[in-house]
Every structure is written in structure tokens, then in C-alpha cells.
Write a protein that binds this DNA or RNA. Structure first.
Lengths: 190, 190
DNA sequence: TTAATAAGTCTAGCAGCGCTAGATTGTCAC
DNA sequence: GTGACAATCTAGCGCTGCTAGACTTATTAA
């Protein structure tokens, strides 16, 4: 009975269209512009249909966030130049992380700032987020005994840099200098 | 003519009551619970009165944020133990910053996360925020050549730790360990 | 003292939001 | 064809930020 399969396929496609529309609208006009009404209009269905796919608006944000996690890990891994020293690798990852945050601010916001209904540091943490964490850990490990704690701290630093710069609290022009400073601090042998 | 002065005094008092109500409501039920209607009810005036004090809701958030900046600087300065070494001083400030963020999450959110209409790193940066920045710079300076960049990075790290922990992205139980790790990194002589 | 003006405040309402109950339409097995 | 079920829509609730225009009170001028 291929009919049900077709229906499921169509449903999955529609769900993807919702997520795509949310992401597009968010990047274009910010997350406040992403309303259920507008998404419904975008996919050419009535409003209640969206609630057959997602429990509420937050769940839509969460779905976009999940997409983001799927992209960030590979971006970080690919950012390390061939033959880079451990310190250079760390700098590459740091800069790639920040570039990701600023090239896709709405995506980044969904992943790390907005309520998205996603759970972390628990057993149900998405695999893609684990991968992202591991990508960061890989460049921290060579310099730190307790790699998990050090990675959490490294990640926090990057997130803080992204957020403070995004809100205009620190000067965007000095991004590279700050990263260099941080890598200098972390990567020098004690 | 003391009448106008009395009126100005009353207006200032009412403004303070609005800010106080906003802060109280935010700490109790989160910022989404802080609606103009509820604030109006709280100060026992009708809704439009609030718009004689603040341009819009964001401006109210901004006023609360400004209060927060007035408190954070002194908190950081007071946190350094007597006779603390430079490294210990840095750790004191870091822990005090995080405790501030977690004891007054709504206040912290107003200061650093929510749109508040405040401008930073510009000529019109509030004096209290400058003071806060200087309090952080004071403990970073002993270890870094370029104190401004280093302080921005230090601040970003603290902010990132606060935010990731607040959102459950990193384990709250390891807060102290992360801070110790960071101070170890920054405070060792190169 | 009274009339005109100004300041202060309120009522009522707009357009938009997230979300949902209940009606309606379309699709299928029999 | 018909009844059952799923898919979808219309219409609406209670909330939001914000504001126009009415009204009431205070201040000034004649």
C-alpha cells in the first residue's frame, strides 16, 4: 500500500517547507517576524495545519536549531587548515565558529539563545550537537588535562564573543585580535 | 514655584515604581510576564500613562538594565577578598559575576540579552557600564599586555558561561571547575 | 469669580499574536 | 452509493503593544 507512504512523504516535505520558511523569514526579518500565521501563508495552508507538525511555535524554532547543529559541526571540522599546528587549528575553529554565528545570526539565535524546547547535556542530546562539541574538544584537548571542562569553557568563550558582538557590546573590528589573544592564552605550554 | 518641582518629583517616583514593578515581575515570572497592561495595573494607572514615561516596552527593559549596571560594578569590586593575589582576585570577580547572573537572572537578561534600546561601546555608553568594564579590567590587567582586548575576551567568557549554563547547555555543577580552569589559563605567567 | 487654556488621565479600540473548537470538505472501503 | 474517517478550513478566544480621542482636573488670565 504505497498510498500511506506517499502521504508520509508529502507530510515530511511539508514539514521541511515549514522549517525552510521559518529559517528564511528569520534570516530576512528576524525571529519576531516568524509568526505561525505568516508561515501558514508561506506554505499555502491554513494555520492549524502547522500544529499537526509542531506542538507550538517553539518547536518550530527547535527544528531550525536542529538543522543548525547539523551544519555547525562539519563547518568547524572543515575549518582546520591542512597541516595546521594545534594552536592554528584552535584559531581556525574559533574563527569559523564566529563566522558561522555572524553569517547566520538567526540560525545561531535559534540554536543557542531562543527557547527551542531542546534538551542538552542529557541523554537525549541530539547527536549532531554532540558532534559539534567533539569538534571543539578536538582542538582543545592537546592543551588541557580535563578536556571536557576545558571545552565547555572554550565554547562559552566563543558563545560570549558571538553574543556580545552581536549586541554591540564589544567592538566587531577587534574580533580577530580577541581570538588571537584567547588562543595565545590557551595554547601556550604551561 | 514649588509646584512644578513637586510634579517632577511625583513623576520620577512613579517612573521608579514602574521600573520596580517591571523588575519584580520579571524576576518572579520571567520577562514574558512583564506586559504593559500588568505594569499599569501594578502602579494603579491606566496603560497610556506608561507611554508618557517610556517610549515603548523595550525602553522599560532598558531602564531595568541600567539599574543592573549600577549594581554589577560595585558587586564585582566588592567581591575581591582582602589580600587576594592577582589570580585570586580574578577568580573572585569571575565567580561574583556568575553569581550575579544566576541570583538575578531576569536583571541579567535585561542587561545583556534582551533588546533594551541601550547603546554600548559608543560615546553614550552609560557611566555605570564603563565602571563595570573597568572593574573587570582591573583583574585582567596584571596578566595581559593589551588590557582592553583581554578584558573584552574575559567578559565574553563570563557572559558565555552565564548564558550556556542558564540555558542548560553546560553542567551547572562544574561552574567552579570551569572558572578555575579559565583563571589558570589566564593567570599563569607566560 | 469666572472663562479659557493647558495638563493629566482614561476609555475604547486597532491590528496582530499563539492557539484551538467545531464545521466542512475530501478520500477511502464496502 | 453510502458511511466512516482523515484532512483541512473558518471563525474565534484571550492575549499583546500601542494610540486616538474623550474627558476631567488644574492653572492661568480677564
Amino acid at each position: 500500500m504505497g498510498i500511506n507512504e506517499r502521504k508520509e512523504r508529502e507530510k515530511a516535505e511539508r514539514e521541511q517547507r515549514i522549517i525552510g520558511a521559518a529559517r528564511m523569514l528569520a534570516e530576512k526579518d528576524g525571529w519576531t517576524a516568524v509568526t505561525v500565521r505568516r508561515l501558514a501563508q508561506e506554505i499555502e495552508y491554513s494555520q492549524p495545519v502547522l500544529y499537526a507538525h509542531f506542538e507550538n511555535r517553539d518547536a518550530i524554532v527547535g527544528a531550525v536549531a536542529l538543522e543548525g547543529f547539523g551544519e555547525l559541526g562539519p563547518v568547524l571540522r572543515a575549518s582546520v587548515r591542512r597541516g595546521a599546528s594545534p594552536a592554528e587549528a584552535m584559531e581556525d575553529v574559533a574563527m569559523a565558529y564566529l563566522e558561522f554565528a555572524f553569517k547566520r545570526p538567526a540560525l545561531y539565535e535559534a540554536m543557542f539563545v531562543l527557547p527551542s524546547g531542546l534538551r542538552f547535556a542529557k541523554s537525549d542530546t541530539p547527536q549532531s550537537l554532540r558532534d559539534t562539541f567533539r569538534a571543539m574538544m578536538a582542538v582543545v584537548e592537546p592543551f588541557c588535562a580535563n578536556a571536557e571542562v576545558a571545552t565547555e569553557a572554550f565554547w562559552a568563550t566563543l558563545h560570549g564573543l558571538a553574543e556580545l558582538e552581536r549586541h554591540g557590546r564589544i567592538r566587531a573590528a577587534l574580533r580577530k585580535e580577541r581570538v588571537t589573544h584567547i588562543v595565545d592564552m590557551l595554547a601556550r605550554r604551561s
